[in-house]
Simulated scan of single mutants.
Amino acid sequence: MAISVKIDDDLKSRVQRLAESRRRSSHWIMREAIEQYVEREEARASFRAEAQESWVAYRETGLHLTGQEVRDWLGSWGTEEETEVPTCHE
């Protein structure tokens, strides 16, 4: 599927300079930028959906971990005293 994107002359020049410095085509630079943008926005949407699901689950069950419990658990990573994920509680 071919898509045409109109960009102003300043942005076009910037893309061309970047492409030359990276020894890539302008097309490659623009495709890469679009791909990274779409991946980032998809990840952001997934994060929001997961956060919303977590909020709904918390409201329904009241189960949670405190911030300190999470910090303590993460702080144990990579140490001899590494602990398992704490159990959620009310």
Rank of each mutant, 00 (worst) to 15 (best):
M1K: 09
M1A: 09
M1F: 11
M1I: 07
A2V: 14
I3V: 15
V5E: 09
V5F: 15
K6C: 03
I7A: 03
I7P: 02
D8Q: 03
D9G: 02
D9F: 00
D10A: 09
L11A: 04
K12H: 15
K12N: 13
K12M: 08
K12V: 01
S13M: 07
S13L: 08
S13Y: 06
S13N: 09
S13H: 04
R14D: 13
V15Q: 01
V15E: 03
V15D: 02
V15T: 02
R17W: 01
R17Y: 00
L18Q: 06
A19V: 01
E20C: 00
E20P: 00
S21A: 12
R23A: 05
R24E: 14
S25W: 03
S26W: 00
S26Q: 05
H27L: 01
W28H: 10
W28I: 00
I29P: 04
M30W: 05
M30T: 11
M30F: 07
R31K: 11
R31S: 12
E32D: 15
I34Q: 04
E35Q: 12
E35A: 10
E35H: 07
Q36K: 12
Q36S: 11
Q36G: 03
Q36D: 13
Y37K: 06
V38T: 04
E39K: 14
E39D: 09
E41H: 06
E41Q: 13
E42T: 05
E42V: 09
R44S: 08
A45I: 02
S46K: 13
S46G: 05
R48S: 07
R48C: 03
A49D: 11
A49I: 04
A49K: 09
A49P: 02
A49H: 06
E50N: 05
A51K: 14
A51Y: 12
Q52F: 06
E53I: 00
E53N: 00
E53K: 01
E53L: 01
S54A: 13
S54H: 10
S54R: 15
W55Y: 11
W55E: 10
W55C: 02
V56G: 00
V56W: 05
V56Y: 03
A57R: 15
Y58R: 05
Y58W: 14
Y58G: 01
Y58A: 00
R59W: 13
E60H: 11
E60D: 13
T61D: 09
T61K: 10
L63Q: 11
L63E: 11
T66R: 12
T66P: 08
T66L: 08
T66Y: 12
G67Y: 13
Q68Y: 14
V70P: 10
V70A: 13
R71P: 05
R71C: 12
R71L: 14
W73Q: 10
W73M: 06
W73S: 09
L74F: 12
G75M: 10
S76A: 15
S76V: 08
W77F: 15
G78E: 11
T79F: 14
E80D: 14
E80P: 10
E81R: 13
T83H: 06
T83R: 14
E84H: 07
E84Q: 09
P86A: 07
P86I: 05
T87R: 14
T87P: 02
C88E: 15
C88S: 08
E90P: 07
E90K: 10
E90T: 07
